[in-house]
């Protein structure tokens, strides 16, 4: 039984890795793979079906759908990765600091995090981007400014747990500096759950970014971004349903890849389970059922509520 679970996990990890690498390669090699220029308008060939020249047909301006999809990877996926990098650049040091330092520092950081988490993330990011004005860069900034809080909280939770390990105590006893302990010992211990988290959240960020572009609040036409392409296809839903099929599929397949990869990377019983629990996510076997999410909440409220 246990063996079965393990192979199942490995299969999803492999499928996820293949999907993710495939999409990444599509983005990197887009100039080589794309049959035509993604911005080339050919009104004579508009809304054409698949052909040798346009393998997936053309859109309402006669642009090659396949080329736009390939180049779209560069915007949709690479923007999501950029947001992820920015988010982790903030949340890892902040979470590390809060968990490791504890006390007053922890309380102040956690209060800021709780305030940010009181807002629906997508809505606050939307509002910040709206205030800053349209543009992909503003959207990236808005996402990074809002999205870091949840991760910082999770990373703090991991650090709190890892801090109690004997090897940390040993490192402290042997006179290692705080910085060295925090980065060398604790962060390394949290590397795997952070990787799982990163893989899963790339999918979420990609979904949100493309969603905002779909609403016309993110990337702007004519750029070949998947959300923009979906939005472009809306007026033709009755006559050319194929147009909305491919960009949506591209988003769904990419997100699925990251989710499968995250699922496969998570070790059963490893440290990753603690953060899933604290988020109320899929709880692996535990001795007391209703407790995990509840106790995490109560702990969160109590720890810095006095």
């Amino acid at each position: 039984m246990k063996n079965q679970v393990k192979t199942g996990k490995q299969v999803s990890a492999w499928i996820g890795a293949v999907l993710v690498l495939g999409v990444l390669a599509a983005g990197v090699f887009a100039p080589l793979l794309a049959p035509s220029d993604p911005l080339d308008v050919h009104m004579a060939h508009r809304l054409a079906g698949p052909s040798a020249e346009y393998p997936l047909g053309t859109d309402h301006l006669g642009r090659c759908v396949l080329s736009r999809l390939l180049y779209g990877t560069r915007l949709s996926l690479f923007d999501a990765l950029a947001v992820l990098a920015a988010v982790f650049a903030v949340s890892v040091p902040v979470g590390l600091l809060a968990g490791y330092a504890g006390g007053r520092t922890d309380r102040i950081i956690m209060t800021v995090i709780d305030v940010l988490l009181a807002f629906p993330g997508l809505i606050l990011a939307l509002a910040v981007a709206a205030m800053l004005g349209p543009g992909a860069l503003h959207l990236l900034l808005a996402f990074a400014a809002v999205w870091w809080a949840g991760y910082a909280r999770l990373i703090r939770g991991m650090v709190l747990q890892l801090k109690e390990n004997d090897y940390v105590l040993a490192a402290r006893a042997s006179g290692s500096s705080h910085l060295r302990i925090a980065f060398d010992h604790i962060l390394r211990g949290a590397a795997r759950p952070i990787l799982v988290l990163a893989s899963m959240e790339t999918g979420t960020i990609l979904l949100s970014l493309a969603g905002l572009s779909f609403l016309g609040l993110g990337a702007q036409p004519p750029v070949p971004e998947w959300g923009v392409m979906l939005s472009d296809s809306r007026p033709y839903i009755q006559t050319e349903p194929n147009l909305m099929l491919f960009p949506g599929l591209a988003i769904a397949v990419s997100v699925l890849g990251f989710n499968l990869l995250a699922e496969g990377l998570r070790e059963p019983g490893g440290p990753s389970r603690s953060w899933r629990n604290s988020f109320g996510g899929a709880a692996p076997k535990r001795s007391r059922a209703a407790k995990p999410a509840a106790s995490a909440r109560i702990e969160a409220q109590r720890g810095h509520g006095e």
């Binding site: 999918g203 959300g227 988003i251 989710n259």
Partner: peptide, 17 residues
């Protein structure tokens, strides 16, 4: 898996269609 990977706006378009 489908539920967490599917973009809501795409599912909405498919349902609309």
């Amino acid at each position: 898996l489908a539920s967490v990977s599917m973009p809501a706006y795409w599912l909405g378009l498919l349902l609309l269609f």
